[in-house]
Amino acid sequence: CHSECLGNCSQPDDPTKCVACRNFYLDGRCVETCPPPYYHFQDWRCVNFSFCQDLHHKCKNSRRQGCHQYVIHNNKCIPECPSGYTMNSSNLLCTPCLGPCPKVCHLLEGEKTIDSVTSAQELRGCTVINGSLIINIRGGNNLAAELEANLGLIEEISGYLKIRRSYALVSLSFFRKLRLIRGETLEIGNYSFYALDNQNLRQLWDWSKHNLTITQGKLFFHYNPKLCLSEIHKMEEVSGTKGRQERNDIALKTNGDQASCENELLKFSYIRTSFDKILLRWEPYWPPDFRDLLGFMLFYKEAPYQNVTEFDGQDACGSNSWTVVDIDPPLRSNDPKSQNHPGWLMRGLKPWTQYAIFVKTLVTFSDERRTYGAKSDIIYVQTDATNPSVPLDPISVSNSSSQIILKWKPPSDPNGNITHYLVFWERQAEDSELFELDYCLKGLKLPSRTWSPPFESEDSQKHNQSEYEDSAGECCSCPKTDSQILKELEESSFRKTFEDYLHNVVFVPRKT
């Protein structure tokens, strides 16, 4: 048989008469490798580009789960590009990614509803959504962080984005990388972005840091009482949809009607710091009717980097990364020049730590249904340095008659930039024990000054392991946590139920 035959053949030295091919099969003959313009397919066939392209389009058009959109890589027609490569849609070739590779997620039936953290986790790592997304989240724990972890990498949506009755959302900033909504599939009414009845939605994105392009379709905003109209108009300008909307697409009466839409800028007039305090004062603000001013709200939190936005980490279910302080308005003076500047002394802060701070007014709604208010920009203030805590785990070892090696770990709280350490030492008198000992005694162990690591005695271990207080009263049991108490109650309830079950099964009433 021919060298490319495997198993047997019907005619000697003829690659077209093989029972099976050793390498690849091409047009009725066995070959060692697939010549151009053919590609290896499933490690035994040679196919042309049209064959591989037909497989790709067949799966793409069917949208069946589990099928493969075949691509070409290293002269092979394979189910998908290997790690580190992405497909070129024009020629199906796998090309190296520039940075992290995109991950295209194809949605069944063309859309997916995100109504819980669990459903959001199914899209973790996706960068391109081939379909439409509907966000409908009523509640949950730590929602802002969970949504950002699972949806934060999405850069492109081919269909539309719909935010509907998501009472738990305060902001859409968890879509931190969303840059493009194509609108290839539109919501009824030709809408590519749809926001309806979101009672706590206050911000779409921080438009000073976020760009969003909507290729096709219109915007729809109705019944978002805490979303200011200025935020919607800003989205029109940034996304390129200005002029597409009709009169009733953006409701003037049901958007922002319960919001404090600040239209003035508060400026800080005085800032002073110490290692654990920050004193702030800002310019006074009074609405047209000074009785509408209820006070100020001061927001602050630790910020290692200057990239904080107002609604980071917030949701309507209680999660809030900001510390909020309510401040009463100052006494009002008739003389504008003698107006008191409101302020606040922030206490209990960490030394040498940068804080993000902003302040906003708290006002009631005027009778004319106009909203007044003022808010400052987010500023960054760093507390002063102070003395560091003591170095940890000092170790001293003498390696000769004239040297001592000293080692330690950095302090747990540096409280500033540590530039150097101060080492103090003092000579001590020799131990009298060394002169009084009889060095001729056998088995004498000389006193040693070398360091030995501390260890816990058996008594201390027994005390720590004991669940009861000892007789001397030195140790006591740790208080039980809520989960331990709940577990004990469940076990007790189970024992009672099981005992009742045994009584009912074992003891049967005697027939009379």
Results as ranks from 00 to 15, higher is better:
103 K>R: 13
103 K>E: 11
104 V>G: 05
107 L>I: 08
108 L>F: 11
109 E>W: 14
109 E>H: 14
110 G>C: 10
113 T>G: 06
114 I>E: 00
114 I>P: 01
114 I>S: 01
115 D>Q: 05
116 S>I: 08
116 S>Y: 02
119 S>E: 05
119 S>I: 14
119 S>A: 03
120 A>G: 11
121 Q>N: 08
121 Q>T: 08
122 E>R: 07
122 E>Q: 04
125 G>L: 11
126 C>I: 01
127 T>A: 02
128 V>A: 12
129 I>M: 05
130 N>Y: 03
131 G>D: 01
132 S>Y: 01
134 I>V: 10
134 I>R: 05
135 I>Y: 02
136 N>M: 02
138 R>E: 04
139 G>T: 03
140 G>T: 04
140 G>L: 14
141 N>Q: 09
146 E>Q: 08
147 L>E: 00
147 L>Q: 02
147 L>F: 13
148 E>T: 11
150 N>M: 07
150 N>D: 05
150 N>R: 08
153 L>F: 06
154 I>G: 00
154 I>Q: 00
155 E>N: 11
155 E>S: 06
156 E>I: 12
156 E>A: 06
156 E>S: 07
156 E>M: 10
158 S>P: 00
158 S>W: 12
158 S>G: 02
158 S>V: 08
158 S>L: 14
158 S>C: 13
159 G>V: 02
160 Y>S: 13
162 K>R: 10
163 I>A: 04
165 R>A: 14
166 S>L: 09
167 Y>R: 10
167 Y>H: 03
169 L>M: 06
169 L>I: 08
171 S>C: 04
171 S>K: 08
173 S>K: 12
173 S>R: 06
174 F>W: 06
176 R>C: 10
177 K>Q: 05
177 K>P: 01
177 K>H: 04
179 R>W: 09
179 R>H: 15
180 L>A: 12
184 E>S: 14
184 E>L: 08
185 T>K: 15
185 T>N: 13
185 T>C: 01
186 L>T: 10
187 E>D: 15
187 E>R: 13
187 E>P: 12
187 E>A: 05
189 G>W: 08
191 Y>F: 04
192 S>F: 01
192 S>M: 03
193 F>Y: 03
194 Y>D: 10
194 Y>I: 08
195 A>P: 00
195 A>T: 06
198 N>E: 00
198 N>L: 05
199 Q>W: 07
199 Q>C: 10
200 N>D: 07
200 N>R: 06
201 L>A: 03
203 Q>F: 03
205 W>S: 02
205 W>R: 02
206 D>Y: 04
206 D>Q: 05
207 W>S: 05
208 S>Y: 11
209 K>M: 13
209 K>Q: 06
209 K>I: 14
211 N>S: 12
212 L>F: 11
213 T>P: 03
213 T>N: 04
215 T>P: 07
217 G>P: 01
218 K>M: 13
218 K>A: 12
220 F>W: 03
220 F>K: 14
221 F>N: 01
224 N>V: 01
224 N>W: 01
228 C>N: 08
231 E>Y: 01
231 E>N: 03
232 I>A: 09
232 I>M: 09
232 I>N: 01
234 K>C: 10
234 K>W: 08
234 K>N: 09
238 V>E: 10
240 G>E: 06
241 T>H: 09
242 K>I: 09
244 R>H: 09
244 R>C: 06
245 Q>P: 12
253 K>H: 09
254 T>L: 11
254 T>I: 14
255 N>E: 03
255 N>Q: 10
255 N>A: 06
255 N>W: 04
257 D>F: 09
258 Q>P: 13
258 Q>R: 06
259 A>W: 08
260 S>A: 09
260 S>H: 04
261 C>P: 11
261 C>F: 04
262 E>V: 06
264 E>H: 03
264 E>P: 10
265 L>E: 06
265 L>Y: 11
266 L>G: 01
266 L>N: 01
268 F>V: 05
270 Y>T: 00
272 R>L: 01
273 T>D: 01
274 S>V: 03
274 S>Q: 07
276 D>A: 10
277 K>G: 15
281 R>Y: 00
282 W>K: 00
283 E>S: 09
283 E>W: 02
283 E>K: 05
284 P>L: 14
284 P>T: 11
285 Y>T: 03
286 W>M: 07
286 W>N: 07
286 W>V: 04
287 P>L: 10
288 P>K: 07
289 D>K: 03
289 D>C: 14
289 D>R: 09
289 D>E: 03
290 F>N: 15
291 R>S: 14
291 R>Q: 14
292 D>P: 10
293 L>V: 05
294 L>P: 07
294 L>D: 05
295 G>I: 04
295 G>A: 15
295 G>W: 15
296 F>A: 06
296 F>K: 00
297 M>C: 06
300 Y>E: 01
300 Y>R: 07
300 Y>L: 10
301 K>C: 02
302 E>I: 08
302 E>V: 04
305 Y>V: 12
307 N>P: 08
312 D>V: 06
313 G>D: 03
314 Q>V: 10
315 D>T: 05
317 C>E: 15
317 C>M: 09
321 S>L: 13
321 S>H: 11
321 S>Y: 02
322 W>R: 01
322 W>D: 02
322 W>H: 05
324 V>Y: 09
325 V>T: 14
326 D>C: 03
326 D>N: 14
327 I>G: 01
327 I>N: 01
329 P>A: 06
333 S>M: 05
333 S>K: 09
334 N>I: 04
334 N>P: 06
334 N>A: 07
335 D>I: 12
337 K>T: 14
338 S>Q: 07
338 S>L: 09
339 Q>L: 10
340 N>F: 08
341 H>D: 11
341 H>S: 13
341 H>N: 12
341 H>W: 07
342 P>S: 03
342 P>M: 12
343 G>T: 05
344 W>V: 04
344 W>E: 10
345 L>W: 14
345 L>R: 04
346 M>Y: 01
346 M>R: 02
347 R>P: 13
347 R>H: 04
350 K>L: 10
350 K>W: 14
351 P>I: 04
351 P>E: 03
351 P>Q: 05
352 W>A: 10
353 T>C: 00
356 A>E: 01
357 I>N: 00
359 V>R: 00
361 T>K: 02
361 T>S: 09
361 T>I: 05
363 V>R: 03
365 F>V: 09
367 D>S: 10
368 E>D: 11
370 R>V: 11
370 R>W: 08
371 T>K: 08
372 Y>N: 13
373 G>H: 02
373 G>N: 02
373 G>M: 02
374 A>E: 03
374 A>Y: 06
376 S>N: 00
377 D>T: 11
377 D>W: 07
378 I>P: 02
379 I>R: 07
380 Y>P: 00
380 Y>T: 15
382 Q>V: 09
384 D>R: 04
387 N>T: 12
388 P>R: 01
389 S>H: 06
390 V>I: 15
390 V>G: 03
391 P>Y: 02
391 P>I: 04
392 L>K: 03
392 L>R: 14
393 D>W: 15
393 D>N: 05
394 P>C: 14
396 S>L: 14
398 S>C: 15
400 S>Y: 15
400 S>N: 12
401 S>Y: 13
402 S>I: 04
403 Q>C: 13
404 I>Q: 01
405 I>A: 05
406 L>S: 03
406 L>F: 15
407 K>H: 03
409 K>F: 11
